[in-house]
Design a protein around this nucleic acid. Structure first.
Lengths: 344, 344
DNA sequence: ATGAAAGCGCTAACAA
DNA sequence: TTGTTAGCGCTTTCAT
């Protein structure tokens, strides 16, 4: 039933807790026969000392940060974690990461576990859509548990590190429009991503400043991985026939890589027949044959800043007001896009 | 100095701990004026309740597994984490991941933090080379702390999930030799990787069964990322002139992607001029233009099995003996290698 | 509506 | 060499 405690061991072995404790800590002043007897009992009971009860469960010297991301196998988050880790490590904090993988319950569980284990602060990339239940964030606030967000949530006054997706996406779309593209299809990200919604909004704003009309049909729900981009693009290309768009913009570089593959299989040259733009500028891009035009997101920096802000809040004697930091994302023009303007 | 406790709040507010506790837990039976006064004091003191002291710090209902990997931004580990997470989640365990990034001290700190926070078990991909200090593993054993390893360590009788790198690497090398390659250069992994050492050993064994002689010069220390492969291959190709090897084998697919890029820049066709083989078979490969010949490592499965074995040990009433599970890695022949045998 | 006291599993200081 | 006791920060009866 209940896990055995030091008392169970002591009672069973016929010694006091203190002696058992001494054995546990390899103290030299325990008689050998006693030690052996106690070790035997521990073995029998499969006794596992509860570490958090040590030192009167006082704040450990080991400080730690919890980090909650959405997709473990996405290099976007890889760099965020790396950035947070880099700063935290220098300051003596250990970063523990959990991934929700798009699952709200999982996200809640990670938050619960991390806070019940008393990490010193939480950096959260929150799952977010219409039906998201944000009450856990208010609970954190109520208990004055320090946290910083890596995607802003309207109505939650919390510290946040974010990037201006709307502006960057608008710039990318404008660039395509200036280069003669009048029909652009966007392969959008997961429903739980604010960033995806913001990128769509950026497109919309770029359109609104031209005579072009923005249609919902040009947004295709896709996902976050290459497999998603591949599947969606293949389906699009097969269904659309001759009247396809001249440019594809993608939720992220992974999706773009999948789209590229689909184009290739359908006999489409990039950028000859279609232009493609990605998002994030993941490190791997540099080593791929076709240099992808993309939007560079300072992911490592985001992670670093998040850790920095978090630790600042943690170590403050006074309660600090929420702080917001916006980093810039920048369009990087490479070889997967071209000018198709008739006059230009 | 010391962080404020519930006693500090109680004293300062002029009420008892119990009342403060009631406020903390939003109990309805606290007079409004009292609640306000206490909340004010909490705010003043920036009081943060220590979650681990709740419920008399009894085992939380939330079970958890610690997972320690070596490189956060490597898709190899991404899949291992995903596999472990997948199984653990189904069993109600939350996975918390820390990455050592090749740093021994960081690894130790992660172990310490995770065990002091009482995760129920630890899955470790250990940093390992001549100078590694493994004492922390013996300390875990001494305290009967459940853990499983994802790379075997000689002399440490612990549960382990591993793959037969020697056999797979031998098979890959034999395949190259059978296809007429008599000079193979291997771009090796990080010094802290047992797997890298095992892959070299596999090569050596393949050589030893032929008249070809295995030279240390054909092993080039490289790293784990595309940037490493790119740098190393470029340097090799620039220095070697006309007498270069006809085949490159690589520590992993990322390195291979970097090597491919270097070949491309040096005007070498793959597989026309050189054959290249990777390792791991990361998901992304499927979407790249050149289909890489590689060794498929069942990473997701490794993660799953590790979690499964770990949970089995955790939940056992009796102390279970260490268990070893070996999974197979399999050569996957695709388009980056070709037969150059004069006669065949 | 509030307070006093016991208890969670362990360590540490002191006694025996 | 071993045992007794107090205490870590909180929750939870049970009184008041």
């Amino acid at each position: 039933m209940r896990n055995p405690t030091i008392d169970d061991v002591a009672k069973r072995a016929g010694f006091s807790k203190a002696t058992v404790s001494a054995v546990l800590n390899d103290s030299s002043k325990v008689k050998d026969s006693t030690r052996r007897k106690i070790l035997d009992v521990m073995e029998d009971l499969n006794y596992r000392p509860r570490a958090s009860a040590r030192n009167g469960f006082r704040p450990g010297a080991d400080r730690s940060l919890g980090l909650i991301i959405k997709e473990i196998d996405n290099p976007y988050y890889g760099q965020i974690v790396a950035g947070a880790r880099s700063y935290a490590n220098d300051r003596g904090y250990t970063v523990l990461t959990g991934s929700s993988e798009g699952d709200y319950e999982a996200e809640q569980r990670i938050v619960n576990v991390l806070k019940s284990k008393d990490v010193d602060g939480l950096i959260i990339v929150p799952l977010l859509d219409e039906e998201a239940d944000l009450s856990y964030l208010f609970e954190l606030k109520r208990r004055n548990f320090p946290f910083v967000l890596l995607e802003s949530i309207r109505g939650v006054p919390a510290s946040v590190i974010d990037i201006d997706n709307v502006a960057a996406s608008k710039a990318a779309t404008e660039y395509l429009i200036e280069n003669g593209h009048e029909r652009i299809v966007h392969f959008a990200g997961p429903h739980y991503s604010t960033h995806s919604a913001e990128r769509i909004e950026g497109m919309r704003r770029a359109y609104s400043e031209t005579s072009l009309v923005f249609s919902k049909d040009s947004i295709i729900p896709t996902g976050a991985y290459a497999a998603d981009g591949y599947r969606a693009a293949l389906e699009y290309l097969r269904s659309v026939g001759r009247s396809r768009a001249t440019a594809f913009s993608c939720y992220n570089d992974l999706v773009a890589i999948g789209v590229l593959r689909a184009c290739n299989e359908m006999g489409l040259d990039v950028p000859g027949d279609v232009s493609v733009v990605g998002y994030d500028d993941i490190d791997l891009l540099e080593y791929l044959p076709l240099k992808l035009t993309t939007v560079r997101v300072p992911r490592f920096e985001m992670g670093r800043k998040a850790a920095e802000l978090m630790i600042k809040h943690i170590e403050s004697k006074e309660k600090l007001p929420p702080e917001r930091i916006d980093l810039e994302a920048e369009l990087v023009i490479r070889e997967s896009t071209r000018n198709i303007a008739s006059g230009g």
